[in-house]
Amino acid sequence: MRLLAFVCERSAARAVEEARKTGSWPDGLELVTVPCSGRVDVLHITGALTRGYAGVLVVGCFEEACEFVQGNLVARRRVDYLRQLLAQAGVQADRVRFEFASPAGAPRLVRAVREMTEAVQALGKGERA
């Protein structure tokens, strides 16, 4: 089962790096680094889902910590909107998630990723509900 995460290069990407150094980063998650989580388009996420990814995580900076003021919040709104659309289309919304992260908060991101992985595993391989 393939999982994908879009990670903001100013927060999540660094937390991932730190988690990798300490060996706590879970395997099996593919990463796409973006300059800001606000760069992630709904089309990128749906593209990933149709291509066979079972779940997509978008990770941005915590509220009020975005270098670009509100890119993270724009991204979160987009993900929320997409989750609604997916639910209407009969796809489990939980396959797509948004998480906040900080470069100094690796354990917290690892927890979030584990949670997401378990949730998606429980949903199965991406058959339509």
Partner: peptide, 16 residues
Amino acid sequence: CKATDRCLHCGVCLVS
């Protein structure tokens, strides 16, 4: 990082 569900402006991310 001392964020709750939002950034509390502790400044630790300035290091990275």
